[in-house]
Amino acid sequence: MSHENIISIEHVSKRFPVGDGEFTALSDITIYFRRGEFAGVVGPSGSGKTTLLNIIGSLDTPTEGTAVVMGRNISNLSHKESARLRNMHLGFIFQVYNLLPVYTVFENVEFALILQHKSAAERKKAVMEALEWVGMAGMARKKPSKISGGEGQRVAIARAMVKRPDLVLADEPTANLDAKNAHAIIQTMKNLNRELHTTFLFSTHDEKVMSYLDRMVHLEDGKVAKDEFIKTKTTKP
């Protein structure tokens, strides 16, 4: 295991109780991701993609094995420590955007910075910069209900990126978008990956997204079926 790994998953299994039995979502997975990767966990529904992302995002813990993110063992973190990890180092992009409905676009993006106790001036500068990145600066005052799905996902990207996280976890980010918007969104994230060297990890089964990825980890029935490096921009750890 290299110290340059931003994510180290070793022999991780995750099982959920279902009725009297158990459902195995992940089974003895070992995988590493390095800083700056633009990678995806791909596979059919139920293959364990989202479960893996939730564990990496410290929203869940493995039943067995160790998941180390940014040098922190997810299983050993307290609620407060995992909240701090998410707040300071991780960005999330969800399938349904999950924008806070009563806040404006600006306030949605600003939220993470408020939690970091940044000053108003710092927040304003960072938020406008993030909105510029995704081409939404002109809609800063609008409520989420007044913008389209594609625009909503752009705002979600800005919200994830505004705190300059080390790692962005995107769970099916294009599932609710048309082809044109999906390409635009992925291109935006790709640009941010290049410019800011932020690590992006997707969970997807969308061919459009896959076409942009540098690396694809194929999951099948909770196991790594294939670890595929499409381009040689990153090296296998």
Binding site: A83, R86, N98, L100, P101, A112, L115
Partner: peptide, 16 residues
């Protein structure tokens, strides 16, 4: 619920 989950994902603790 989704909003609560989002707050937690964005870095709020449960007690916050």
């Amino acid at each position: 619920q989704k909003e609560i989950g989002t707050y937690i994902a964005l870095g709020m603790t449960r007690w916050q």
